[in-house]
């Protein structure tokens, strides 16, 4: 491994391409810590936003007018405002209203730290779109298929669990993939509230090493790789869920 890291040192000395995030152990440590934070931020927000989408879409289809209105209000609020403002609002305005935790050695710290607020905001932001995406998928399930299940005795919960959601997921997976990819990219906004994610640590590195050009390239390549992996996974999922006679072209019998 040191051989690989040393190669970057040679690259700098021979060609002037300065990438301390690879050859310098301190920069490397903080860069990969940032990458890990971004991954954690992404995974938490993706999972939570999908859960919010499912629950919201379920509530929209429920008989309760109150539940429907609440979900519609939430979707409007979070779909129609910039995520940076949502993040600032939640972190600075709402965060200050929450009680603080007393610490053992005296003093206190906020109930939720920046990372937690970023997860909350990203989940709510992505979730608002996911509600609409799942709703469109659920509405595309033919009423006749739903009736066939009802005639077999399926109640609302089992109907959704075994028939409606599996079909809706297949229908809305391309739209869902787009939104999740967007959500991962939006995680860079956590920079604004000082969460040490990829963009934040990169900025620290280029401030110290004066290598903005190189770090920008590293950053872009890292995001392309990360989002590429996610897209690849989602396409694999799409292929695995494909059944003949349903949805996209190229279904294999």
């Amino acid at each position: 491994m040191t051989g690989v890291w040393d190669w970057f040192l040679w690259l700098y000395e021979a060609h002037g391409i300065n990438l301390p995030v690879f050859y310098d152990s301190y920069d490397r440590q903080r860069f990969f810590a940032g990458l890990l934070t971004t991954l954690e931020l992404s995974v938490c927000s993706v999972v939570a936003s999908v859960a919010i989408g499912l629950v919201g879409a379920w509530a929209l289809g429920s008989g309760s007018v109150v539940a429907r209105r609440l979900v519609q209000g939430y979707v409007h609020a979070f779909r129609n405002t910039p995520p940076l403002i949502q993040l600032s609002f939640l972190y600075f305005a709402v965060g200050n209203l929450l009680p603080r935790l007393e610490m053992a050695g005296g003093g206190s710290r906020p109930l939720l730290d920046g990372f937690a607020w970023a997860v909350v905001t990203l989940s709510l932001f992505g979730g608002a779109f996911n509600v609409e995406i799942f709703r469109s998928g659920i509405e595309a399930v033919p009423a006749s298929t739903v009736e066939a299940a009802e005639a077999l005795g399926f109640n609302r919960w089992r109907l959704h669990r075994h028939v409606v959601l599996p079909l809706a997921l297949r229908i809305c997976l391309p739209a869902l993939s787009n939104n999740l990819v967007n959500l991962v990219k939006t995680s860079t906004l956590a920079y604004a509230i000082g969460v040490p994610e990829l963009l934040y640590v990169s900025a620290q590195v280029w401030a110290d090493a004066m290598n903005v050009r190189e770090m920008m390239n590293v950053l872009l390549v890292t995001y392309v790789g990360m989002v590429g992996l996610l897209s690849f996974g989602l396409r694999r999922l799409e292929a695995a869920l494909r059944v003949p006679g349903l949805g996209t072209v190229g279904g294999q019998p």
Binding site: P142, S144, T145, E147, A148, A149, H162, V163, P166, L167, R170, L241, V243, G245, L246
Partner: peptide, 10 residues
């Protein structure tokens, strides 16, 4: 049983 079969396609 329905005219359009309505099997679960998945």
């Amino acid at each position: 049983v329905f005219q359009q079969y309505n099997l679960f396609p998945h």
